[in-house]
């Protein structure tokens, strides 16, 4: 029974491939792959330099909490959710992001509940490391590994930026 099922599944895939084949031979092609992937080990000035090149636009701080933080690749995986912004000692600002907990609900596609899950924690990400992607926020200056390696942020350990304040954040085009 299972061998038959596998054979049939393979048949479906082959049929799809056979149909996809001629299409793939025709190439017009989308625009070249964008050079927006974060470089591992980027220094703070480098990060700020790249952020400045992304045409920072005014955004109301109160409009940011609740936005998804996305990884800049085609499948747009969710890395976390923005909870607010705090002032840094150097006058800049950090985006506070809640990372997914041990249940891995983000991975399962359950974004609405993932950040209330067990083991989720907050991290502070420099605003220079993120950019606005429509109604989302994309992680541009850090790799996901470095994001997850950031120390936990203790709520109340820094001054919150008020919702009515306006900040400038870089923008980015969709990833594909």
């Amino acid at each position: 029974m299972s061998a038959r099922a596998i054979r049939c599944a393979r048949g479906v895939v082959l049929l799809t491939l056979a149909l996809a084949g001629p299409a793939q031979a025709q190439t017009a092609g989308p625009s070249p792959a964008p050079d927006h992937m974060p470089k591992p080990g980027m220094t703070a000035p480098e990060m700020a330099g790249r952020a400045a090149g992304r045409f920072p636009q005014p955004v109301r701080v109160g409009d940011l909490p609740g936005r998804l933080l996305l990884q800049p690749e085609e499948s747009q995986p969710v890395l976390g959710r923005v909870t607010g912004l705090v002032r840094r000692n150097d006058g800049g600002a950090d985006v506070i992001v809640r990372l997914d907990g041990v249940l891995g609900l983000t991975w399962l596609g359950l974004q609405p509940v993932a950040w209330s899950g067990v083991g989720s924690r907050l991290v502070a990400v420099p605003v220079e490391a993120v950019a606005l992607l429509g109604e989302h926020v994309a992680l541009m200056g850090l790799t996901p590994e470095r994001l997850r390696a950031l120390p936990a942020f203790a709520p109340g350990s820094a001054t919150a930026v008020q919702p009515d304040e306006t900040l400038r954040l870089g923008i980015v085009r969709p990833f594909h």
Binding site: L17, A23, T27
Partner: peptide, 9 residues
């Protein structure tokens, strides 16, 4: 492998 068409258009 399962997409039909080499790109969106």
């Amino acid at each position: 492998a399962i997409r039909l068409g080499s790109w969106a258009a």
